[in-house]
Design a protein around this nucleic acid. Sequence first.
DNA 1: TGGTTTTTGTGATTTTTTTCACAAAACACC
DNA 2: GGTGTTTTGTGAAAAAAATCACAAAAACCA
Lengths: 208, 208
Amino acid sequence: MKTTKNCITRLYQYREALYRMKTSGCQKVFSNDLAEAIGANSSQVRKDFSLFGISGNKRGGYGIHELMDQLDTLFNKNQMRKIIVVGVGNIGRALMNYESFARELILIEAAFDIDPMKYDREALIPVLPMEELQDYITHNKIKMAIIAVPYFAAQQVFDLMSAAGIRGVVNFSPVSLKTPEDVFVNNVNVQLEIDIVHYFVNALDKKE
Amino acid sequence: MKTTKNCITRLYQYREALYRMKTSGCQKVFSNDLAEAIGANSSQVRKDFSLFGISGNKRGGYGIHELMDQLDTLFNKNQMRKIIVVGVGNIGRALMNYESFARELILIEAAFDIDPMKYDREALIPVLPMEELQDYITHNKIKMAIIAVPYFAAQQVFDLMSAAGIRGVVNFSPVSLKTPEDVFVNNVNVQLEIDIVHYFVNALDKKE
DNA sequence: TGGTTTTTGTGATTTTTTTCACAAAACACC
DNA sequence: GGTGTTTTGTGAAAAAAATCACAAAAACCA
Ligand SMILES: NC(=O)c1ccc[n+]([C@@H]2O[C@H](COP(=O)([O-])OP(=O)(O)OC[C@H]3O[C@@H](n4cnc5c(N)ncnc54)[C@H](O)[C@@H]3O)[C@@H](O)[C@H]2O)c1
Ligand SMILES: NC(=O)c1ccc[n+]([C@@H]2O[C@H](COP(=O)([O-])OP(=O)(O)OC[C@H]3O[C@@H](n4cnc5c(N)ncnc54)[C@H](O)[C@@H]3O)[C@@H](O)[C@H]2O)c1
Protein backbone atom coordinates (compact mmCIF):
# COMPACT_ATOMS: atom_id res chain seq x y z
CA MET A 1 0.00 0.00 0.00
CA LYS A 2 1.28 3.44 -0.94
CA THR A 3 0.78 5.39 2.23
CA THR A 4 2.73 8.58 2.25
CA LYS A 5 2.96 11.02 5.09
CA ASN A 6 0.98 13.57 3.11
CA CYS A 7 -1.84 11.17 2.76
CA ILE A 8 -1.90 10.31 6.45
CA THR A 9 -1.80 13.97 7.30
CA ARG A 10 -4.84 14.62 5.18
CA LEU A 11 -6.72 11.72 6.70
CA TYR A 12 -6.24 13.24 10.13
CA GLN A 13 -7.36 16.58 8.80
CA TYR A 14 -10.50 15.04 7.42
CA ARG A 15 -11.15 13.58 10.79
CA GLU A 16 -10.68 16.91 12.52
CA ALA A 17 -13.06 18.53 10.05
CA LEU A 18 -15.57 15.72 10.49
CA TYR A 19 -15.50 16.23 14.22
CA ARG A 20 -16.49 19.85 13.80
CA MET A 21 -19.16 18.99 11.26
CA LYS A 22 -20.63 16.42 13.59
CA THR A 23 -20.59 18.93 16.42
CA SER A 24 -22.57 21.32 14.29
CA GLY A 25 -25.18 18.67 13.60
CA CYS A 26 -24.31 17.25 10.19
CA GLN A 27 -24.96 13.61 9.36
CA LYS A 28 -23.25 13.10 6.05
CA VAL A 29 -20.62 14.68 3.79
CA PHE A 30 -19.52 14.58 0.19
CA SER A 31 -15.92 14.37 -0.87
CA ASN A 32 -16.36 17.91 -1.99
CA ASP A 33 -17.14 19.22 1.48
CA LEU A 34 -14.12 17.51 2.96
CA ALA A 35 -11.93 18.80 0.18
CA GLU A 36 -13.08 22.30 0.88
CA ALA A 37 -12.62 21.92 4.61
CA ILE A 38 -8.95 21.12 4.29
CA GLY A 39 -8.23 23.02 1.10
CA ALA A 40 -7.77 20.12 -1.30
CA ASN A 41 -9.29 18.60 -4.40
CA SER A 42 -12.28 16.28 -4.09
CA SER A 43 -10.70 13.43 -5.99
CA GLN A 44 -7.78 13.68 -3.63
CA VAL A 45 -10.19 12.95 -0.83
CA ARG A 46 -11.69 9.97 -2.60
CA LYS A 47 -8.30 8.63 -3.56
CA ASP A 48 -7.06 8.90 0.00
CA PHE A 49 -10.04 6.92 1.18
CA SER A 50 -9.78 4.33 -1.54
CA LEU A 51 -6.18 3.73 -0.57
CA PHE A 52 -7.40 2.54 2.78
CA GLY A 53 -10.47 0.76 1.54
CA ILE A 54 -12.83 3.33 2.98
CA SER A 55 -15.87 3.65 0.80
CA GLY A 56 -18.97 5.77 0.73
CA ASN A 57 -22.28 5.54 -1.06
CA LYS A 58 -22.53 6.47 -4.69
CA ARG A 59 -24.65 9.53 -4.79
CA GLY A 60 -25.04 9.52 -1.02
CA GLY A 61 -21.61 10.64 0.11
CA TYR A 62 -20.24 9.40 3.42
CA GLY A 63 -21.96 8.99 6.74
CA ILE A 64 -20.03 11.16 9.17
CA HIS A 65 -20.41 8.80 12.06
CA GLU A 66 -19.38 5.75 10.06
CA LEU A 67 -16.51 7.55 8.45
CA MET A 68 -15.10 8.76 11.74
CA ASP A 69 -15.32 5.28 13.12
CA GLN A 70 -13.40 3.90 10.18
CA LEU A 71 -10.73 6.56 10.57
CA ASP A 72 -10.55 5.94 14.29
CA THR A 73 -9.98 2.26 13.74
CA LEU A 74 -7.34 3.01 11.17
CA PHE A 75 -5.62 5.34 13.59
CA ASN A 76 -6.06 3.26 16.73
CA LYS A 77 -7.75 6.28 18.14
CA ASN A 78 -9.47 4.23 20.73
CA GLN A 79 -6.27 3.33 22.42
CA MET A 80 -4.94 5.76 25.03
CA ARG A 81 -1.84 7.50 23.81
CA LYS A 82 0.70 8.04 26.53
CA ILE A 83 3.34 10.62 25.91
CA ILE A 84 6.03 12.43 27.86
CA VAL A 85 7.44 15.93 27.55
CA VAL A 86 11.10 16.75 27.97
CA GLY A 87 11.87 20.42 28.64
CA VAL A 88 9.41 22.25 30.83
CA GLY A 89 9.80 25.74 29.42
CA ASN A 90 7.47 27.93 27.40
CA ILE A 91 6.48 25.29 24.91
CA GLY A 92 6.56 22.35 27.28
CA ARG A 93 4.21 24.11 29.69
CA ALA A 94 1.87 25.19 26.93
CA LEU A 95 1.45 21.59 25.91
CA MET A 96 1.05 20.36 29.46
CA ASN A 97 -1.73 22.89 30.04
CA TYR A 98 -3.63 22.15 26.86
CA GLU A 99 -6.93 20.63 27.81
CA SER A 100 -8.23 19.37 24.49
CA PHE A 101 -5.61 16.65 24.25
CA ALA A 102 -7.77 14.59 26.59
CA ARG A 103 -10.57 14.56 24.03
CA GLU A 104 -8.27 12.71 21.65
CA LEU A 105 -6.98 10.39 24.34
CA ILE A 106 -3.58 12.01 24.23
CA LEU A 107 -2.29 11.80 27.77
CA ILE A 108 0.83 13.64 28.84
CA GLU A 109 1.87 11.38 31.65
CA ALA A 110 5.04 13.00 32.93
CA ALA A 111 7.55 15.70 32.11
CA PHE A 112 11.30 15.91 32.58
CA ASP A 113 13.75 18.76 32.97
CA ILE A 114 17.36 19.31 33.88
CA ASP A 115 16.62 22.26 36.12
CA PRO A 116 15.93 21.27 39.77
CA MET A 117 13.75 24.35 40.18
CA LYS A 118 11.23 22.75 37.86
CA TYR A 119 10.92 19.42 39.60
CA ASP A 120 7.48 18.78 41.05
CA ARG A 121 6.45 15.24 41.86
CA GLU A 122 3.07 16.25 43.22
CA ALA A 123 1.78 18.09 40.18
CA LEU A 124 -0.99 16.68 38.02
CA ILE A 125 1.68 16.03 35.44
CA PRO A 126 4.79 15.35 37.55
CA VAL A 127 8.03 17.04 36.53
CA LEU A 128 10.91 14.68 37.12
CA PRO A 129 14.70 14.93 36.89
CA MET A 130 16.41 13.80 33.73
CA GLU A 131 18.14 11.03 35.64
CA GLU A 132 14.82 9.21 35.81
CA LEU A 133 13.96 9.60 32.13
CA GLN A 134 15.23 6.30 30.83
CA ASP A 135 13.83 4.24 33.66
CA TYR A 136 10.49 5.91 33.32
CA ILE A 137 10.32 5.17 29.63
CA THR A 138 11.16 1.51 29.99
CA HIS A 139 9.06 0.90 33.09
CA ASN A 140 5.96 2.57 31.71
CA LYS A 141 6.47 1.38 28.15
CA ILE A 142 6.30 4.94 26.81
CA LYS A 143 6.57 5.04 23.04
CA MET A 144 6.17 8.74 22.27
CA ALA A 145 7.87 11.89 23.48
CA ILE A 146 7.93 15.61 22.87
CA ILE A 147 11.25 17.42 22.80
CA ALA A 148 10.99 21.01 24.00
CA VAL A 149 14.54 21.74 25.10
CA PRO A 150 16.95 24.31 23.62
CA TYR A 151 18.59 23.33 20.35
CA PHE A 152 21.96 22.48 21.84
CA ALA A 153 20.40 19.86 24.09
CA ALA A 154 18.02 18.32 21.59
CA GLN A 155 20.20 15.64 20.02
CA GLN A 156 21.50 14.48 23.35
CA VAL A 157 18.00 14.26 24.81
CA PHE A 158 16.88 12.39 21.73
CA ASP A 159 19.66 9.86 22.01
CA LEU A 160 18.73 9.14 25.61
CA MET A 161 15.08 8.57 24.78
CA SER A 162 15.75 6.59 21.74
CA ALA A 163 18.08 4.27 23.62
CA ALA A 164 15.38 3.74 26.24
CA GLY A 165 12.80 2.66 23.70
CA ILE A 166 11.01 5.75 22.42
CA ARG A 167 9.67 5.13 18.91
CA GLY A 168 8.18 8.48 17.95
CA VAL A 169 9.07 12.08 18.69
CA VAL A 170 7.64 15.52 18.09
CA ASN A 171 10.61 17.84 18.06
CA PHE A 172 10.10 21.53 18.75
CA SER A 173 13.77 22.41 18.59
CA PRO A 174 15.01 23.82 15.32
CA VAL A 175 17.63 21.16 14.69
CA SER A 176 16.99 18.17 12.51
CA LEU A 177 17.82 15.17 14.62
CA LYS A 178 20.02 12.29 13.57
CA THR A 179 17.71 9.37 14.02
CA PRO A 180 17.84 5.61 13.64
CA GLU A 181 15.59 3.99 11.04
CA ASP A 182 13.04 2.74 13.51
CA VAL A 183 12.21 6.00 15.26
CA PHE A 184 9.79 8.38 13.62
CA VAL A 185 10.40 12.10 14.14
CA ASN A 186 8.14 14.99 13.28
CA ASN A 187 9.52 18.49 13.48
CA VAL A 188 7.58 21.57 14.49
CA ASN A 189 9.64 24.62 13.76
CA VAL A 190 7.69 27.67 14.77
CA GLN A 191 10.27 30.21 13.78
CA LEU A 192 10.53 28.64 10.37
CA GLU A 193 6.80 29.04 9.93
CA ILE A 194 7.02 32.72 10.76
CA ASP A 195 10.00 33.16 8.44
CA ILE A 196 8.12 31.56 5.59
CA VAL A 197 5.11 33.76 6.09
CA HIS A 198 7.41 36.74 6.11
CA TYR A 199 8.98 35.64 2.88
CA PHE A 200 5.69 35.25 1.07
CA VAL A 201 4.29 38.48 2.40
CA ASN A 202 7.29 40.27 0.93
CA ALA A 203 7.05 38.30 -2.28
CA LEU A 204 3.38 39.13 -2.69
CA ASP A 205 4.10 42.79 -2.03
CA LYS A 206 6.73 42.95 -4.70
CA LYS A 207 4.50 41.37 -7.27
CA GLU A 208 1.97 44.17 -7.08
CA MET B 1 11.38 31.51 -11.39
CA LYS B 2 10.04 28.29 -9.92
CA THR B 3 10.05 29.01 -6.23
CA THR B 4 7.90 26.58 -4.36
CA LYS B 5 7.19 26.66 -0.69
CA ASN B 6 9.26 23.52 -0.20
CA CYS B 7 12.23 25.24 -1.66
CA ILE B 8 11.86 28.35 0.50
CA THR B 9 11.47 26.17 3.55
CA ARG B 10 14.72 24.42 2.80
CA LEU B 11 16.54 27.69 2.26
CA TYR B 12 15.54 28.81 5.74
CA GLN B 13 16.64 25.48 7.12
CA TYR B 14 20.02 25.87 5.48
CA ARG B 15 20.29 29.25 7.10
CA GLU B 16 19.45 27.87 10.51
CA ALA B 17 22.04 25.13 10.08
CA LEU B 18 24.61 27.65 8.88
CA TYR B 19 24.04 29.74 11.96
CA ARG B 20 24.89 26.80 14.16
CA MET B 21 27.91 25.87 12.07
CA LYS B 22 29.20 29.40 12.29
CA THR B 23 28.64 29.42 16.04
CA SER B 24 30.77 26.32 16.32
CA GLY B 25 33.58 27.95 14.39
CA CYS B 26 33.22 26.70 10.82
CA GLN B 27 34.17 28.90 7.90
CA LYS B 28 32.93 27.01 4.89
CA VAL B 29 30.53 24.22 3.93
CA PHE B 30 29.90 21.85 1.07
CA SER B 31 26.49 21.13 -0.36
CA ASN B 32 26.89 17.76 1.23
CA ASP B 33 27.15 19.13 4.75
CA LEU B 34 24.05 21.24 4.30
CA ALA B 35 22.17 18.33 2.82
CA GLU B 36 23.03 16.22 5.80
CA ALA B 37 22.12 18.96 8.25
CA ILE B 38 18.57 19.17 6.99
CA GLY B 39 18.18 15.59 5.80
CA ALA B 40 18.17 16.16 2.04
CA ASN B 41 20.16 15.30 -1.05
CA SER B 42 23.19 17.39 -1.96
CA SER B 43 22.03 18.21 -5.46
CA GLN B 44 18.82 19.43 -3.93
CA VAL B 45 20.89 21.94 -2.03
CA ARG B 46 22.75 23.09 -5.10
CA LYS B 47 19.60 23.28 -7.14
CA ASP B 48 17.90 25.39 -4.51
CA PHE B 49 20.81 27.79 -4.55
CA SER B 50 21.05 27.90 -8.30
CA LEU B 51 17.37 28.83 -8.47
CA PHE B 52 18.22 32.01 -6.62
CA GLY B 53 21.52 32.66 -8.31
CA ILE B 54 23.52 31.80 -5.23
CA SER B 55 26.81 30.25 -6.20
CA GLY B 56 29.76 28.75 -4.45
CA ASN B 57 33.29 27.89 -5.48
CA LYS B 58 33.99 24.81 -7.49
CA ARG B 59 35.92 22.55 -5.28
CA GLY B 60 35.82 25.09 -2.46
CA GLY B 61 32.22 24.83 -1.32
CA TYR B 62 30.48 27.87 0.09
CA GLY B 63 31.78 30.50 2.50
CA ILE B 64 29.44 30.39 5.45
CA HIS B 65 29.55 34.10 6.08
CA GLU B 66 28.97 34.99 2.48
CA LEU B 67 26.23 32.44 2.07
CA MET B 68 24.35 33.64 5.11
CA ASP B 69 24.57 37.19 3.85
CA GLN B 70 23.12 36.17 0.54
CA LEU B 71 20.30 34.32 2.22
CA ASP B 72 19.67 37.25 4.52
CA THR B 73 19.36 39.60 1.60
CA LEU B 74 17.05 37.21 -0.14
CA PHE B 75 14.91 36.99 2.95
CA ASN B 76 15.02 40.66 3.93
CA LYS B 77 16.34 39.43 7.20
CA ASN B 78 17.84 42.78 7.96
CA GLN B 79 14.49 44.42 8.18
CA MET B 80 12.69 44.27 11.53
CA ARG B 81 9.72 41.98 11.41
CA LYS B 82 6.81 43.27 13.43
CA ILE B 83 4.15 40.82 14.36
CA ILE B 84 1.15 40.64 16.65
CA VAL B 85 -0.39 37.77 18.58
CA VAL B 86 -4.11 37.24 18.97
CA GLY B 87 -5.14 34.96 21.80
CA VAL B 88 -3.06 35.16 24.96
CA GLY B 89 -3.45 31.61 26.21
CA ASN B 90 -0.98 28.75 26.48
CA ILE B 91 0.43 29.10 23.02
CA GLY B 92 0.20 32.87 22.77
CA ARG B 93 2.13 33.29 26.00
CA ALA B 94 4.76 30.75 25.01
CA LEU B 95 5.47 32.76 21.90
CA MET B 96 5.48 36.06 23.75
CA ASN B 97 8.04 34.72 26.20
CA TYR B 98 10.37 33.22 23.63
CA GLU B 99 13.59 35.16 23.72
CA SER B 100 15.37 33.93 20.64
CA PHE B 101 12.93 35.67 18.31
CA ALA B 102 14.87 38.87 18.94
CA ARG B 103 17.97 37.30 17.40
CA GLU B 104 16.10 36.99 14.13
CA LEU B 105 14.59 40.44 14.39
CA ILE B 106 11.16 39.00 14.94
CA LEU B 107 9.42 41.46 17.23
CA ILE B 108 6.11 40.64 18.83
CA GLU B 109 4.82 44.16 19.26
CA ALA B 110 1.46 43.64 20.88
CA ALA B 111 -1.07 40.98 21.76
CA PHE B 112 -4.85 40.95 21.77
CA ASP B 113 -7.46 38.99 23.65
CA ILE B 114 -11.18 39.01 24.22
CA ASP B 115 -10.89 38.36 27.93
CA PRO B 116 -10.62 41.54 30.04
CA MET B 117 -8.66 39.63 32.67
CA LYS B 118 -5.81 39.40 30.22
CA TYR B 119 -5.54 43.06 29.32
CA ASP B 120 -2.29 44.66 30.39
CA ARG B 121 -1.21 47.87 28.76
CA GLU B 122 1.92 48.21 30.86
CA ALA B 123 3.50 44.86 30.00
CA LEU B 124 6.57 44.62 27.85
CA ILE B 125 4.30 43.24 25.17
CA PRO B 126 1.00 44.99 25.89
CA VAL B 127 -2.15 42.88 25.84
CA LEU B 128 -4.98 44.91 24.33
CA PRO B 129 -8.70 44.39 23.85
CA MET B 130 -9.96 43.05 20.55
CA GLU B 131 -11.78 46.30 19.90
CA GLU B 132 -8.42 47.90 19.24
CA LEU B 133 -7.12 45.22 16.91
CA GLN B 134 -8.05 46.74 13.59
CA ASP B 135 -6.93 50.24 14.47
CA TYR B 136 -3.66 48.92 15.78
CA ILE B 137 -2.98 47.03 12.58
CA THR B 138 -3.69 49.94 10.30
CA HIS B 139 -1.94 52.56 12.44
CA ASN B 140 1.20 50.54 12.92
CA LYS B 141 1.19 49.02 9.46
CA ILE B 142 1.37 45.50 10.85
CA LYS B 143 1.57 42.89 8.13
CA MET B 144 1.90 39.64 10.07
CA ALA B 145 -0.10 38.04 12.84
CA ILE B 146 -0.27 34.87 14.87
CA ILE B 147 -3.63 33.31 15.60
CA ALA B 148 -3.70 31.44 18.91
CA VAL B 149 -7.40 31.47 19.75
CA PRO B 150 -9.72 28.46 20.06
CA TYR B 151 -10.87 26.94 16.80
CA PHE B 152 -14.36 28.38 16.91
CA ALA B 153 -12.98 31.92 17.01
CA ALA B 154 -10.22 31.50 14.45
CA GLN B 155 -12.06 32.34 11.24
CA GLN B 156 -13.71 35.37 12.75
CA VAL B 157 -10.42 36.68 14.11
CA PHE B 158 -8.83 36.06 10.75
CA ASP B 159 -11.50 38.01 8.92
CA LEU B 160 -10.99 40.99 11.19
CA MET B 161 -7.24 41.02 10.67
CA SER B 162 -7.43 40.43 7.04
CA ALA B 163 -9.88 43.31 6.58
CA ALA B 164 -7.50 45.58 8.49
CA GLY B 165 -4.57 44.82 6.23
CA ILE B 166 -2.79 41.75 7.57
CA ARG B 167 -0.99 39.92 4.76
CA GLY B 168 0.47 36.88 6.47
CA VAL B 169 -0.69 34.65 9.29
CA VAL B 170 0.63 31.76 11.33
CA ASN B 171 -2.42 29.86 12.47
CA PHE B 172 -2.18 27.61 15.51
CA SER B 173 -5.83 26.67 15.53
CA PRO B 174 -6.72 23.38 13.90
CA VAL B 175 -9.13 24.82 11.33
CA SER B 176 -8.06 25.61 7.84
CA LEU B 177 -9.01 29.22 7.26
CA LYS B 178 -10.90 30.54 4.29
CA THR B 179 -8.53 33.12 2.96
CA PRO B 180 -8.43 35.66 0.15
CA GLU B 181 -5.78 35.27 -2.56
CA ASP B 182 -3.49 37.95 -1.23
CA VAL B 183 -3.07 36.73 2.33
CA PHE B 184 -0.58 33.97 3.02
CA VAL B 185 -1.43 31.53 5.79
CA ASN B 186 0.77 28.91 7.38
CA ASN B 187 -0.79 26.37 9.69
CA VAL B 188 0.86 24.86 12.73
CA ASN B 189 -1.24 22.00 13.98
CA VAL B 190 0.41 20.51 17.01
CA GLN B 191 -2.12 17.83 17.64
CA LEU B 192 -1.89 16.70 14.06
CA GLU B 193 1.85 16.31 14.48
CA ILE B 194 1.34 14.12 17.51
CA ASP B 195 -1.31 12.10 15.71
CA ILE B 196 0.99 11.49 12.78
CA VAL B 197 3.79 10.32 15.01
CA HIS B 198 1.37 8.00 16.71
CA TYR B 199 0.29 6.59 13.39
CA PHE B 200 3.78 5.83 12.23
CA VAL B 201 4.84 4.37 15.55
CA ASN B 202 1.98 1.93 15.26
CA ALA B 203 2.72 1.27 11.62
CA LEU B 204 6.37 0.54 12.34
CA ASP B 205 5.39 -1.76 15.17
CA LYS B 206 3.12 -3.78 12.96
CA LYS B 207 5.73 -4.21 10.31
CA GLU B 208 8.09 -6.05 12.63
C1' DT C 1 53.20 22.02 -16.18
C1' DG C 2 50.13 18.32 -16.58
C1' DG C 3 47.59 14.95 -14.45
C1' DT C 4 44.43 13.84 -10.55
C1' DT C 5 40.91 14.89 -7.39
C1' DT C 6 37.15 17.38 -5.59
C1' DT C 7 33.00 19.78 -5.79
C1' DT C 8 29.90 22.81 -8.11
C1' DG C 9 25.92 23.84 -11.45
C1' DT C 10 22.45 22.16 -14.23
C1' DG C 11 20.01 19.54 -18.00
C1' DA C 12 17.89 14.99 -18.21
C1' DT C 13 15.55 11.41 -15.85
C1' DT C 14 12.94 9.34 -12.39
C1' DT C 15 9.76 9.31 -8.80
C1' DT C 16 6.01 11.14 -6.36
C1' DT C 17 1.88 13.67 -5.94
C1' DT C 18 -2.07 15.76 -7.67
C1' DT C 19 -5.65 16.38 -10.85
C1' DC C 20 -8.59 14.92 -14.65
C1' DA C 21 -12.11 12.44 -16.61
C1' DC C 22 -15.36 9.09 -16.98
C1' DA C 23 -17.77 4.56 -16.18
C1' DA C 24 -20.65 2.59 -12.83
C1' DA C 25 -23.71 2.75 -8.95
C1' DA C 26 -27.54 4.86 -6.41
C1' DC C 27 -31.27 7.47 -5.95
C1' DA C 28 -35.33 10.60 -7.34
C1' DC C 29 -39.01 11.66 -9.92
C1' DC C 30 -42.38 10.91 -13.14
C1' DG D 1 -39.85 0.71 -14.71
C1' DG D 2 -37.47 4.13 -17.36
C1' DT D 3 -34.92 8.48 -17.49
C1' DG D 4 -32.07 11.92 -15.65
C1' DT D 5 -29.03 13.49 -12.03
C1' DT D 6 -25.64 13.10 -8.61
C1' DT D 7 -21.60 11.35 -6.61
C1' DT D 8 -18.35 7.76 -5.97
C1' DG D 9 -14.05 5.04 -7.27
C1' DT D 10 -10.16 4.69 -10.00
C1' DG D 11 -7.16 4.23 -14.08
C1' DA D 12 -4.85 7.62 -17.05
C1' DA D 13 -2.67 12.12 -17.57
C1' DA D 14 -0.43 16.04 -15.90
C1' DA D 15 2.26 18.56 -12.80
C1' DA D 16 5.61 18.96 -9.34
C1' DA D 17 9.55 17.50 -6.80
C1' DA D 18 13.61 14.98 -6.13
C1' DT D 19 17.55 12.58 -7.85
C1' DC D 20 20.98 11.35 -11.16
C1' DA D 21 24.79 12.05 -13.79
C1' DC D 22 28.22 14.44 -15.84
C1' DA D 23 30.77 18.46 -17.84
C1' DA D 24 33.45 22.20 -16.23
C1' DA D 25 35.96 24.82 -12.92
C1' DA D 26 39.22 24.98 -9.17
C1' DA D 27 42.66 23.22 -6.20
C1' DC D 28 46.23 20.21 -5.20
C1' DC D 29 50.35 17.65 -6.12
C1' DA D 30 54.31 15.78 -8.10
N1 LIG E 1 8.73 29.27 22.87
C1 LIG E 1 8.60 29.47 21.58
O1 LIG E 1 7.72 30.20 21.16
C2 LIG E 1 9.51 28.81 20.59
C3 LIG E 1 9.51 29.26 19.29
C4 LIG E 1 10.35 28.65 18.35
C5 LIG E 1 11.16 27.61 18.75
N2 LIG E 1 11.14 27.18 20.01
C6 LIG E 1 12.01 26.07 20.38
O2 LIG E 1 11.35 25.19 21.25
C7 LIG E 1 12.27 24.70 22.21
C8 LIG E 1 11.76 25.03 23.58
O3 LIG E 1 11.56 26.43 23.67
P1 LIG E 1 11.10 27.11 25.01
O4 LIG E 1 10.78 28.53 24.72
O5 LIG E 1 10.06 26.28 25.66
O6 LIG E 1 12.46 27.05 25.84
P2 LIG E 1 12.70 27.36 27.37
O7 LIG E 1 14.06 27.90 27.49
O8 LIG E 1 11.54 28.15 27.91
O9 LIG E 1 12.63 25.93 28.05
C9 LIG E 1 13.59 24.95 27.83
C10 LIG E 1 13.54 23.98 29.01
O10 LIG E 1 14.41 22.92 28.73
C11 LIG E 1 15.17 22.64 29.92
N3 LIG E 1 16.44 22.01 29.52
C12 LIG E 1 17.56 22.57 29.06
N4 LIG E 1 18.49 21.65 28.78
C13 LIG E 1 17.95 20.47 29.08
C14 LIG E 1 18.42 19.13 29.02
N5 LIG E 1 19.65 18.83 28.56
N6 LIG E 1 17.60 18.15 29.42
C15 LIG E 1 16.36 18.43 29.87
N7 LIG E 1 15.85 19.68 29.95
C16 LIG E 1 16.65 20.67 29.57
C17 LIG E 1 15.35 23.97 30.58
O11 LIG E 1 15.60 23.80 31.96
C18 LIG E 1 14.00 24.62 30.31
O12 LIG E 1 13.08 24.33 31.32
C19 LIG E 1 13.60 25.35 21.91
O13 LIG E 1 14.38 24.48 21.13
C20 LIG E 1 13.23 26.55 21.09
O14 LIG E 1 14.23 26.89 20.17
C21 LIG E 1 10.34 27.76 20.95
N1 LIG F 1 -1.71 24.67 23.87
C1 LIG F 1 -1.43 23.67 23.07
O1 LIG F 1 -0.54 22.89 23.35
C2 LIG F 1 -2.17 23.45 21.80
C3 LIG F 1 -2.05 22.22 21.14
C4 LIG F 1 -2.72 22.01 19.95
C5 LIG F 1 -3.51 23.03 19.44
N2 LIG F 1 -3.64 24.18 20.08
C6 LIG F 1 -4.49 25.20 19.48
O2 LIG F 1 -3.92 26.48 19.63
C7 LIG F 1 -4.91 27.43 19.89
C8 LIG F 1 -4.60 28.12 21.19
O3 LIG F 1 -4.49 27.15 22.21
P1 LIG F 1 -4.24 27.56 23.71
O4 LIG F 1 -3.96 26.35 24.47
O5 LIG F 1 -3.24 28.68 23.75
O6 LIG F 1 -5.70 28.09 24.09
P2 LIG F 1 -6.14 28.88 25.41
O7 LIG F 1 -7.53 28.51 25.67
O8 LIG F 1 -5.10 28.73 26.46
O9 LIG F 1 -6.09 30.40 24.96
C9 LIG F 1 -6.95 30.94 24.02
C10 LIG F 1 -7.00 32.45 24.24
O10 LIG F 1 -7.79 33.03 23.22
C11 LIG F 1 -8.66 33.97 23.80
N3 LIG F 1 -9.83 34.12 22.94
C12 LIG F 1 -10.92 33.33 22.82
N4 LIG F 1 -11.75 33.79 21.90
C13 LIG F 1 -11.19 34.90 21.38
C14 LIG F 1 -11.58 35.83 20.40
N5 LIG F 1 -12.71 35.70 19.72
N6 LIG F 1 -10.77 36.87 20.14
C15 LIG F 1 -9.61 37.01 20.83
N7 LIG F 1 -9.19 36.16 21.77
C16 LIG F 1 -9.98 35.12 22.05
C17 LIG F 1 -8.99 33.42 25.15
O11 LIG F 1 -9.40 34.47 26.03
C18 LIG F 1 -7.66 32.82 25.57
O12 LIG F 1 -6.85 33.77 26.23
C19 LIG F 1 -6.22 26.68 19.93
O13 LIG F 1 -6.86 26.79 18.68
C20 LIG F 1 -5.80 25.27 20.17
O14 LIG F 1 -6.70 24.35 19.60
C21 LIG F 1 -2.99 24.42 21.26
